[in-house]
Simulated scan of single mutants.
Amino acid sequence: MRLETALLPLISLTLASSIPLSHTTTTTNDADHDGVAYRIPTVHESAVLARRILDLEKIGTLSTIFPNAHSAENRPSNVGGSPIGLPDYYANCEPDTGNPTILELPIATSFKNVQAGSNISLSLRWHAPYRHWYSVASVPRFNLVGYLEELTDEEIKDKSIAACFVKKHPDAAAWLPGNRIHVSKWVRFVVQEIYWIGGFGDRAYIGWIPLEDWQSVTLEEIEKARLPGEGTGWGLWTSWLGLGGDKEQETLEL
């Protein structure tokens, strides 16, 4: 077993809250913790990071509520009204709106619940590159509340939805509308509310992001933003382990 693998749990527990973290979208520091200065990102800066996660990630968790009864399925009688969260594919095929694109298979549980009247939300989190060791509690995650809306044939063609989606999910080519296995259709997740957890509360914004901030984020802002692990350095971790690395790198970029 490699040394860094063996020490990973120890690192996560002992260092996650003690290593100074800097945020590339911030320029000044207002708070001070143990002699280290921080500034909590603004709501709009957090919206930019959320939109970058939406662009870079491709799998989220759809949360819905089981109906009290379902004639087409033999479900336990006591699950009515209970929530269920299931992973599903999505793609950012309408980047100008921030509304994720989903390939809906009506046979799937999440979409059955929606058809039965359930609300729906989509949860995403940033998966930092494997070469960077971050506590999950320190990296951004957020929840989108909204509803599903079927795309028109014109929208599907004009926005090249199929090509966009398959670029993110090559295996989804077998499930595109018109396949011989299951009925499927293109829908957009229309975002109405955004709840954001940027990381540890002493250095990240936690709370609601107004829809106007979510929608006003520009493609230029998304391209310039950087998430945990997108920086070039991880010298502090390797230095602590005695494994070498860039000794000049004293902070991990957020």
Results as ranks from 00 to 15, higher is better:
T5S: 14
L13R: 15
T14V: 10
S17M: 13
S18K: 12
L21D: 08
T26F: 00
T26C: 06
T27R: 15
T28M: 12
N29L: 13
G35L: 02
G35Y: 01
A37N: 10
R39K: 13
R39G: 09
T42P: 01
V43P: 00
V43L: 11
H44C: 03
E45N: 07
E45M: 09
E45R: 07
R52P: 02
I53C: 04
D55T: 06
L56K: 15
K58Q: 09
G60C: 03
T61G: 12
L62E: 11
F66P: 02
N68L: 10
H70T: 10
A72H: 09
E73K: 12
E73G: 06
R75W: 10
R75S: 04
P76M: 06
N78W: 08
V79F: 00
S82R: 12
G85I: 06
Y90D: 00
A91G: 01
C93G: 03
G98D: 03
E104S: 06
E104M: 09
E104R: 13
L105K: 07
P106S: 02
I107E: 09
A108Y: 01
V114L: 13
Q115R: 15
A116V: 14
A116C: 09
N119F: 07
I120R: 04
S121Y: 05
L122H: 01
R125N: 15
H127D: 14
H132F: 12
Y134M: 02
S135Y: 00
S135M: 07
S135D: 11
V136H: 04
A137W: 10
S138R: 01
V139R: 10
P140T: 09
R141W: 11
F142I: 06
L144P: 00
Y147A: 05
Y147D: 12
L148S: 08
D153P: 14
E154D: 11
E155N: 03
I156Y: 13
K157E: 12
K157T: 14
K159C: 03
I161S: 01
A162S: 11
A162V: 02
V166D: 07
V166T: 10
K168S: 13
H169P: 02
H169R: 05
H169F: 03
P170I: 05
D171W: 12
A172N: 10
A172S: 11
A173F: 08
A173Q: 12
A173C: 07
W175M: 11
P177M: 03
G178C: 06
I181G: 01
H182I: 02
H182M: 08
V183R: 12
V183K: 13
K185Y: 03
K185H: 14
F189G: 05
I194A: 10
W196C: 06
W196K: 01
G198W: 11
G198A: 05
F200A: 09
R203L: 06
R203I: 11
I206V: 12
I209L: 14
P210Q: 05
L211F: 15
D213M: 04
W214P: 00
V217K: 00
A225T: 02
R226H: 04
P228V: 08
P228H: 13
E230W: 02
G231V: 03
G231F: 03
G231I: 03
G233A: 13
W234A: 15
G235N: 06
W237A: 02
S239I: 04
G245W: 09
K247D: 12
K247A: 13
K247Y: 02
E248N: 07
Q249N: 15
T251K: 05
